[in-house]
Every structure is written in C-alpha cells, then in structure tokens.
C-alpha cells in the first residue's frame, strides 16, 4: 500500500457513530454475504447468530433528555500481542490470527465446538450453531459459494469478509499486481452502509483514511482497558457513548 514504509498490513475498520443512522443495513448485508442462517424465532438473542451484531445504547436519562444510538459490532479482530483472547484458548487450532493481515480467522470444519473461544471473547462476537442451518428449499439458491455453510456444533464469527480479500487478491494477481489498492478489499457491511459511516483499510498505513480517522480525538475502542487491542475503532462526539464503551456507568 502506498505510503506504508513498513509494508505491514493491519486491516481495520472505523465506524463513525455520529454518521450511523441505526438503519442496520450492515447487519443485513453481512447475513446475506456470509450465508448466515436464520430461524423462525430469532428472539432468543444468546442463540441467534449475527456476525455483525447491532448493540443498543442509551444515555439512561429520562424523557426528553433521553438519547439513543446503535453500535454495529463486527468481530473486532483483536490485535493483542501475542494472541487475541479467542485464538489463545482454542485446543485444536481452528482459530488463528493471520499475521500478514491481522485478520482473525475461524475455520468451522476444524472446530470441535468446545466454545472455549466464545467465553474468551469479551465482545460476544462469536456464535455457536445450536442447530443445523436450514433454509427453505428455494432459498438455497441464494447461498453464495464464497463462504461455506456450517453445521450444528461449531462456532462461527465475522471474518471481515476474508473471502473478499481472497477474490481481490486474485484480481490483482491476474492484473500482475502483488499489492491491493485501497478500497479493493472492503467487507460487505462497509460497502452496503448507505450513510458511508463505515471505513475500512490498512491501519498500519499512516496515509490510509482509517489510520487518519483512528487518530481522531473522538476515536475510541470497546473495552479498551482490557488490552485486547481491537482493530475496530469507533468515532463519536457523544461523551456518554465513550463512557458506555468502556463500561463506565
């Protein structure tokens, strides 16, 4: 990437909560992109799989000082050294951080479903398949071959749409390029955001938009004090949102 002397890649996301309208398109686009299954009743939220979950926040004040905001939460792709909390505990090496990109992968076929990673994750970003995914017959035609479907008994989570990185690299290789341009690889949620509130790029490249935004005084990360070093950075001008993000009540 241009302007990145180190050549290092740390893919990260910036979500501007001031621009976010809470429309939840990101979450829908994610489900569609990643063959995320759905059931007739999805209201038991601990059993409902949403790689990109939308958290509800409010300032806790009475009417009419009450204010709310929605916070989209993909997998935060923790950059903690040497391991994210989840990969460290996996007994079968089914989840691992790719040190060339910073992406935390989870390979469902390798997963034994012990759910240790789920308890290790501080952000509820990992989901367990309590049932086999099932679609009405006709809807099987809308499953993308770019993401394999899972089965009951395994864990799954957001991958920052790593299959899009694979495809973007393919395109670059065929055009004779080793490296990707900014914007060539963008997860589905970021692409779909109608308010353009989500940004994606290389945090290690000081010239990238995400790296610049990450330095904003309005930037914060979720539960920063845990030292998990998430690569998803939020922007907000609202102090109460900053406080909630670090669980300060």
């Amino acid at each position: 990437m241009s302007g990145n002397e180190s050549g290092k890649i740390r893919y990260g996301m910036v979500i501007d909560l001031d621009k976010c309208t809470g429309c939840m398109t990101c979450a829908v686009a994610c489900q569609q992109e990643n063959n995320v299954p759905f059931r007739e009743d999805e209201t038991k939220k601990v059993r409902s799989i949403t790689w990109l979950e939308v958290f509800y926040l409010d300032n806790g004040k009475p009417y009419p000082e009450h204010r709310k905001a929605y916070l989209p939460r993909p997998c935060l792709q923790c950059d903690a050294d040497p391991h994210p909390p989840c990969t460290f505990v996996c007994p079968v090496n089914a989840t691992q951080r790719d040190e060339e990109t910073g992406l935390v992968a989870h390979i469902p076929v390798r997963c034994i479903g012990c759910r240790y990673c789920i308890s290790a994750c501080s952000y509820h970003a990992r989901y367990f398949n309590w049932w086999d995914p099932k679609w009405p017959k006709a809807m099987e035609e809308m499953l993308t071959p770019d993401v394999s479907t899972r089965m009951r008994g395994v864990v799954e989570k957001c991958t920052f749409c790593v299959h899009r990185l694979q495809l973007a690299k393919d395109k670059a290789f065929v055009e004779g390029r080793q490296e990707l341009e900014e914007g060539e690889y963008v997860p589905a949620c970021v692409e779909a955001c109608p308010a353009k509130a989500m940004y994606f790029g290389n945090l290690a490249d000081s010239h990238s938009e995400v790296a610049k935004l990450a330095k904003s005084p309005e930037a914060f990360r979720l539960l920063e004090k845990l030292g998990t070093e998430p690569k998803v950075i939020y922007l907000s001008s609202q102090e109460w949102i900053h406080k909630l993000a670090d669980n300060v009540v």
Binding site: A94, R97, D98, E100, A105, H106, I107, T159, L165, Q166
Partner: peptide, 10 residues
C-alpha cells in the same frame, strides 16, 4: 508462503 488458515479457507 503464509500458511494462515484464511489464506486457503472460507
């Protein structure tokens, strides 16, 4: 070449 999971799996 990298042997990270997500180089070859999706």
């Amino acid at each position: 070449v990298s042997n990270a999971c997500d180089v070859c799996h999706h």
